[in-house]
Simulated scan of single mutants.
Amino acid sequence: MSKNALQAQLLKAGLIDDKKAKKINKQAKHAQRTGDSDAAERKKALAKAQAEKLEKDQQLNQERQRQLEEKTLKANIIQMIKQHQIPDTAGEVSYQFVDNSKIKKLHTTQKLYDQIVAGHVVIARLEDGYALLPYPLAERINSKQEGFIVVSNDKDANELDEDDPYAAYVIPDDLMW
């Protein structure tokens, strides 16, 4: 008579009668036909959770992609610096410059020293040391990502600021310390 094993046990125990069992069966069938409101709410909540998870996954994926592109760009710039750095820079003339608020010293030849001061050669950060690069390459590197070029004596930086109170006291770039 009843389709549910629990209902059968309740009938045998005498806790419910046949009328009550039929009424419960009828209500269950009606809820199935019309769509249970709890099930619909659960479906909506599940769909919303899936949409939120998908959006979160997309954001994480975009962040990972951006980090990968940044890492690739950095590796490409390091490779460019290694390929185009000026070889045989060692000499007895020292060029002193500031890197991260620390004074660094680079020993170069007199010819390279003059080119650094004139702005034709720049000093770039390369892993643990420094490399000398031609100015046009340094401009390309700086346009892609900043932070690699340490010293660049380009012409625009040498122009005097109108508000500078020490503009009358010009200090030459080739001043030896």
Rank of each mutant, 00 (worst) to 15 (best):
K26Q: 14
L60C: 07
D17M: 09
I86T: 05
W177I: 14
K29C: 03
A5L: 12
E52Y: 08
A138G: 02
P172C: 08
D163S: 14
Q85T: 06
Y166H: 13
D174G: 09
D174R: 08
Q58L: 04
I149K: 03
S101N: 14
L132A: 02
S152Y: 07
M80L: 12
I116L: 15
D173E: 12
D163I: 10
A167G: 07
I116H: 04
Y130I: 08
A8E: 09
L133P: 00
D99E: 03
Q145C: 11
Q27Y: 07
H120Q: 07
D156H: 11
S2W: 05
D164N: 15
N158I: 12
N76F: 08
E159T: 13
D174N: 15
L10N: 01
G147I: 08
Q110R: 01
K74S: 15
V150D: 00
A40G: 14
A51H: 12
K105W: 04
K3T: 08
D161I: 11
Q110M: 01
P87L: 01
K102L: 10
D163M: 09
A167M: 09
Q83N: 13
Q85F: 05
Q27G: 01
M1N: 04
S101T: 12
K105Y: 06
A31L: 14
K3W: 10
A131F: 01
L133K: 02
E159N: 12
V117H: 05
Y166I: 08
E92R: 03
R42A: 10
A118K: 14
R125C: 00
A5G: 09
H84Q: 13
D173L: 12
Y169K: 08
S94N: 09
K71G: 11
Q58A: 04
Q115W: 04
E162V: 14
K71C: 11
Y169C: 13
A40H: 15
K26I: 05
Y130D: 01
T108E: 02
A75K: 13
L137Y: 02
M176P: 04
G14V: 03
L68I: 08
E127C: 04
K53S: 12
S2G: 02
N76Q: 12
G119W: 07
E127N: 12
L54W: 05
V93Y: 02
Q50L: 09
L46I: 09
A124N: 00
M80P: 03
V122N: 04
Y135V: 02
A157M: 13
K26A: 14
N153M: 06
A51M: 11
A138W: 01
H84Y: 11
K56R: 12
T109E: 00
D156I: 15
T72A: 15
H120S: 05
A157K: 13
